[in-house]
């Protein structure tokens, strides 16, 4: 919160005081970011929407306990990643999309499609490490896999993307 601008700080304080309209503003500012993380990891619109709702609901429940040394955005991304990964662990089999991603999302860029077409674990690692800029160690901790396994996933994903798109 210390690095948030005055508006965000004010919204956080009002949301912490129970004002729904303030929380709604925070939702509007951050919705796209939360949805992007969910959608890129899950590669499924419906699931991403459901998860976005769950993330914001969790944020509403937890906002009173938000640490003052964090920005709202990073705090919310943490909740998002945690919630997505939890969902993946709970419903691993169901989440994987059956259809090729490119058919379902023709408007996306080739790079975005290449990422969405990756296997779920590789996609997750790419999103966390490359897009959300978590460090290798942080990514490893989040995934809960051994470092070598994460390295292999990341390496495999990058090679697939490179072969898929025209760099």
């Amino acid at each position: 919160m210390s690095h948030d601008n005055k508006l965000i700080k004010s919204l956080i304080q009002n949301a912490q005081a129970g004002m729904n309209s303030a929380f709604e503003q925070l939702y509007k500012i951050n919705c796209g970011r939360v949805y992007a993380v969910c959608f890129r990891i899950l590669a499924n619109k419906t699931e991403a929407e459901k998860l976005t709702v769950r993330v914001f609901f969790t944020a509403w429940q937890q906002i009173k306990f938000m640490r003052s040394d964090m920005t709202f955005s990073s705090w919310l991304t943490g909740i998002t990643v945690f919630t997505v990964l939890q969902l993946i662990r709970e419903n691993a089999a169901e989440i994987q999309a059956k259809q090729p991603i490119s058919i379902k999302f023709p408007s996306l860029s080739p790079l975005e499609l290449a990422i969405l077409n990756l296997p779920r674990d590789e996609r997750t690692v790419v999103v966390l490490h490359d897009i959300e800029h978590y460090t290798f160690n942080e990514t490893t901790d989040m995934i809960g896999a051994p470092p070598r396994g994460v390295r292999e996933l990341l390496n495999s994903a990058h090679k697939k993307i490179i072969s898929e798109i025209d760099l």
Partner: peptide
């Protein structure tokens, strides 16, 4: 890559 992707529907009502 874009930092945000807006969902097709407004999810605030669900929240």
């Amino acid at each position: 890559l874009p930092n945000k992707i807006e969902p097709e529907t407004d999810l605030w009502l669900d929240v």
